[in-house]
């Protein structure tokens, strides 16, 4: 006791910091450290090894060379980028439009907000299975509806060129409610005085949107982009429930490649996939963070 506490007892009692003890960090730190920090650091070692049931053997950059040369691995990297950017972009655009619409003077606003938001809370696997049935090329409801109006619907999940985009669309269907919700919070926070001043100046509805709403929604946009990009880049559940990366490996993303390599027993390669995903996320998020924050300071 006496060796570890240099200040005299009287001083310590007055020191308010004593009431916010450092050991409050300890329980969370132990769980977070062992199950998140340690595996993350360890992945940087295992990514350089040939690791399976028999043990881990250091092989340098071989896993990464494989990742960038083998089409079935590299395609996953490209798809992750496409999927992340596409879902995030669509969520920004649709979320913004829906939020502006759902804050205007329309009937049934509460109902519409709930119905747009609710898919966010539903099980991803459930949504995935449901849409796999709805998107079936012959039996599916979507193509039957299209056939009824004389359009031959595509093989949403069976066409190699289309499968990734179909899954991305379902992702947007499920996730746009969250983007809308964030934008609605942003729109509601804009002071009405701006719109009144604009009306005195004779601004049109479009000018209101362009010169008042959009610039003032920048923080909301930043939140939506960051959240949906983080979610999109690590997305696994929906792709696994709908296509399992197929047909072939045309809708594989890095997260599904990691799972497939893990199941196949190539643990080193799987860990290398984690490192690649980490680097991709960092390469996109760091400049984005920097840019979004910097612009805010400039204004």
């Amino acid at each position: 006791m006496t060796t570890t506490a240099p200040p005299a007892p009287r001083q310590r009692r007055r020191d308010p910091r004593r009431h916010y003890p450092m050991w409050f960090y300890l329980p969370a730190g132990v769980v977070y450290g062992t199950l998140f920090i340690v595996p993350t650091i360890a992945s940087f070692y295992f990514a350089f090894t040939r690791w399976n049931m028999t043990g881990a053997e250091f092989i340098g950059l071989e896993n990464f060379a494989l990742f960038f040369s083998e089409p079935y691995l590299f395609q996953g990297l490209v798809n992750t980028f496409v999927y992340g950017v596409l879902t995030s972009g669509l969520k920004v655009v649709l979320g913004l439009l829906l939020a502006v619409f759902l804050t205007s003077q329309i009937i049934a606003r509460g109902y519409l907000r709930s119905v747009v938001f609710f898919p966010t809370l539903v099980s991803v696997v459930g949504v995935g299975i449901t849409f796999t049935v709805l998107m079936d090329p012959e039996e599916g409801l979507i193509n039957r509806a299209l056939a009824a109006v004389g359009i031959a619907g595509p093989g949403w999940l069976t066409d190699p060129d289309l499968a990734l985009f179909s899954v991305a669309l379902v992702d947007v269907w499920k996730g746009v409610g969250l983007a809308t919700l964030i934008y609605i919070a942003g729109v509601v926070a804009i002071p009405q005085e701006y719109f009144e001043a604009a009306r005195v100046d004779g601004a049109t509805a479009f000018q209101n949107l362009r010169y008042i709403t959009l610039p003032l929604l920048r923080p909301a946009t930043a939140t939506v982009i960051v959240l949906s990009l983080i979610g999109g880049l690590r997305s696994f559940d929906l792709i696994w429930a709908m296509t399992q990366g197929g047909p072939g490996f045309t809708s594989d993303v890095v997260a599904s490649v990691i799972f497939k390599q893990y199941q196949a027993g190539f643990w080193g390669l799987s860990s290398a996939g984690n490192v690649v995903l980490f680097l991709l996320v960092a390469a996109l998020m760091v400049p984005l963070y920097w840019k979004l924050n910097r612009k805010e300071v400039e204004q």
């Binding site: 977070y32 992945s43 295992f46 880049l233 984690n274 980490f278 998020m285």
Partner: peptide, 15 residues
Amino acid sequence: AGLIIPPAVVPTIWV
């Protein structure tokens, strides 16, 4: 980091 970094799966299983 906990929000952004995707968890490393196989090393987590190892731990």
